[in-house]
Amino acid sequence: MSALRGFLWLVVFLLCGEALVWALTLPISPGVVGMLLMTLWLALRGRVGHDIQAASQPLIAVLAMLIMPGVVGIFFIADEFAGQWLAVATALLLGTLASVATTLWLMLRFMPPEAADE
């Protein structure tokens, strides 16, 4: 029951996000706005209730499963982009390699060592 009550909270925050996106015509998804609202609300309250904890943990655990229906589409559109697969594969493989290296370098360059805050 606890997880279901928590789920209701998550959906309510999602709907608040939806309303904000609509009202301010934000280009961001309602889920992300809802997530920021949730963080803000928890910060104001100062603790995570048992219900929300019980609902959010299992949902986060299956996050990867929730995008599976979309991502398997790649296996069914092979014919449509015949001749461009080399470009797509190179862009995704090398591009990602380069961007991971860049982000890592930026983080190591600007991030202070951990010990300071613990």
Partner: peptide, 10 residues
């Protein structure tokens, strides 16, 4: 996916 994204706020 919507509620799961909200859950990341925790």
């Amino acid at each position: 996916l919507g509620p799961a994204t909200v859950a990341l706020g925790v």
